[in-house]
Each structure stands twice: as structure tokens, then as C-alpha cells.
Design a protein around this nucleic acid. Structure first.
Lengths: 192, 192
DNA sequence: TATAAAAGAATGAACGTTCATTCTTACTGG
DNA sequence: CCAGTAAGAATGAACGTTCATTCTTTTATA
């Protein structure tokens, strides 16, 4: 009975449980039960829990990039591009809070740290990265602060993620103007 | 054999393990071994693991407040007070990276979220809070952005914590000028 | 010797993973 | 069109391990 969506059921189930209760609050048995499959079935689709976790992250990342790059104008001014990307990101998180919470769990796990270490210290120079490109051009045009790339990332993503977190935890409401002003504050942190 | 520092040994051991490997990477048996005590001994000092975790958080918080309030001038201008507090906080994290990593683990745990929820929604109006006072006065004097308190917190702590995290993970170096410019960028995010 | 403290072996619950088995589907020759 | 059979997807009980906590024994102190 190979329904084509059995894998998707497992992913959705694991995602909900992990986003809400963390990796250790999502035992495979519970993932299986919620997905409506047998415990062993998961292992037909994913070699083990770690691989399930990493593949889920990669799927979210791909989905996220597709969304924020939609309508992105490569030749627009730095500030406009920044506003576009950060706004799209915040909207994405608002629309898919489960994705955000999963990413947060991932970020704070050994997998996430290792992943980030690779990206930063690995010096994948060939690899294309919208964010890096944006900041490098911004530095060249002297419209963003003259600081290391890593710090520019932290200064601009830090507040965005913190606000998103508070919104998703129900600590604050975000209407259109609040979104706009939050993104502008993120820009203020990096603009020269 | 009541050495007076047995409790401290347990706390230090638990702190190191939790900071480095998370709550689930710090089994009680390992905490005991590193502290040089028997597994059962821990339960003479702490009722259970959860209470150990929470008490450790409270100890760090107290230590942190003592440090950042040292030399804090209540009547100084908003910006100067902001710089003082954020700089002291960053220096504290740099000096005690274990404390920072423990706090991060705690923040991302159910304990930490519940704790924060209490502080924000509990409306502990009577409770004194330097940060809230600073932002409220800043808003009154129109030197900080007219945004909800929660968002001002996120905008200013978000980048600080993100940069600290990158420093502690070894992704970036922080000399005196870099510290100064990072704090100023945090200020830029909230200043009007 | 009596009492409190410390130790670490014992316990039971919970976990990720495996595997013998069952069930479903696809394919075959008549 | 229909048995009959092979292939492989799905299952869930069972396993070995790990964990927090408890219990019994040993040790130190008074």
C-alpha cells in the first residue's frame, strides 16, 4: 500500500512534534503514531533519526530560499534589496510558524552548529549566497557598516529572529506597520 | 565527609556539561562523576534534575545582574546607560562563556520559555527591572523608537546575543573596537 | 556506639532501532 | 480474465541501551 504521501506524513508528523517539543520530545514511536504508520516504516524512508532531522532541515531551507528569492531584484539598491529579503523572511516565518520553530530547534542543536560552522569556516567561495553578496556590495558602496560579514549577519538576523520568536510565542502582535518598522530597525543596525 | 563545597562541585560540573552538550548531554551519572561525588549524593542537594537546572539559572542571573549594575549611573543619559548595560553584558559573556552557553540552553528549553512568559505576561509591575525602566524613560524622552517594549528588547538583545554566540563558537574575534561598534549597532536598532 | 552523609548498585521507564512476519501490489502463464 | 506467485512495503513486538531516581550498604564524625 505504497501511498505516495507516506513519506510526507512522516515528515509532517516529525515536524510538528519537534517544532513543539524539541528533538527529545519527539520519539520515533510518537512520530509514527501521529503519521499513522508503523514505527518500523519510518526506517524505510529515513536511515535513522539524525538523517530524518537533517533532510527535514534541507527541505525547509529550499522552501525558504524559493520564497524569499521570488520577486528579488538583483540590480535594485542595497537598502531596497535588504528590505525585500528580510520582509519576505519574516512573512515566511509568520505564515509557517512550524518551520520557524523547527529551524530554531535545529539551530540550537549540534547538527545546526556544525552546519553553520561549515558554511562560515568552510569558505565555500564558489557557493552562491544572496545575503553575502548583498552585504559585500553594500560594504563596497559604503552604505552598510564596515564590519566583518559574520557580524553583519548577526546584527541583522539577530533582531529579526528575536522578534519572530516573540511573535510566535504570543508575546507580541505584528500588524503591517509593525512588520515594516521592525525590518527598518534591522536595517538601522547594519546601515552606515 | 561534608566538604562545604560539594554543592558547588555539582553545580560547576553540571554547568560545564550542560553548557557544552545540552541538557540531554548531561546525564546525572556523568554530572556526579565529573563532580567527584556519588550519583545519589546529588539528590541530597537538589530534589531532582529540573530543580538543579532552575537553581543554576537563578544563580547565573543573580551573578549577571550584580556585574552589570556595578557602576551603573541611574541618572546618566539614556544612550550612555544603554551602552553601559549592553557593554557590561557582552563583557560578562566573554569572560564567562560557560554562563552564556548555559543561558542559551535554558532560553531554548521549556523552562526558559515558561520563565520568560511569566516575566512578560505576568505583568509583574511592582518588580524592578533596569532594562524596562531604561526603555520606558527612553520612549518618554523620545530618544528610542516608539515600539512595544517586547520589540525593543528583541531589537537590542537579539543582535547582542547573536554576536556573542558567534564569538563563543569561534566564528569571529572581538577586540575592543569591535565590541564598541557592535554595541553601537545594537543602539542604532532601537534609537529613534 | 549512634547518627548523619556519601556512595554506587539496583530499578524501572523510555528510547532508537531491528527483524520476523503479514499484507499489498504487480506480474505471469494459461 | 483469472488463479498463482513473486517482490517488496508495512508492521509492531522485542531488544539492548541509557537515563533519572531510589535503595542499600559503607564510611565518617560526634
Amino acid at each position: 500500500m505504497t501511498t505516495p504521501n507516506k513519506r510526507d506524513d512522516i515528515v509532517r508528523s516529525a515536524m510538528e512534534l519537534i517544532a513543539e517539543h524539541g528533538f527529545h520530545g519527539a520519539p520515533m514511536a510518537m512520530v509514527a503514531e501521529r503519521a499513522g504508520v508503523g514505527a518500523g516504516t519510518i526506517y524505510r524512508y529515513f536511515e535513522n533519526k539524525e538523517i530524518l532531522i537533517i533532510e527535514m532541515y534541507q527541505e525547509i531551507e529550499a522552501k525558504m530560499y524559493a520564497l524569499i528569492l521570488d520577486g528579488y531584484a538583483n540590480e535594485a539598491p542595497i537598502r531596497a534589496r535588504f528590505i525585500h529579503l528580510w520582509t519576505a523572511l519574516l512573512r515566511y516565518f509568520i505564515q509557517f510558524p512550524l518551520d520557524f520553530r523547527y529551524l530554531e530547534q535545529f539551530r540550537n542543536s549540534p547538527y545546526g552548529v556544525a552546519c553553520r560552522r561549515d558554511k562560515i569556516l568552510g569558505n565555500k567561495v564558489g557557493e552562491y549566497n544572496v545575503f553575502r553578496e548583498l552585504f559585500e556590495q553594500g560594504a563596497a558602496q559604503q552604505v552598510v557598516k564596515d564590519l566583518p560579514l559574520v557580524i553583519l549577519f548577526s546584527l541583522s538576523f539577530g533582531p529579526l529572529l528575536a522578534v519572530t520568536r516573540d511573535y510566535i510565542l504570543g508575546f507580541v502582535e505584528l500588524d503591517e506597520t509593525m512588520i515594516k518598522r521592525t525590518i527598518e530597525a534591522c536595517w538601522d543596525a547594519v546601515k552606515r
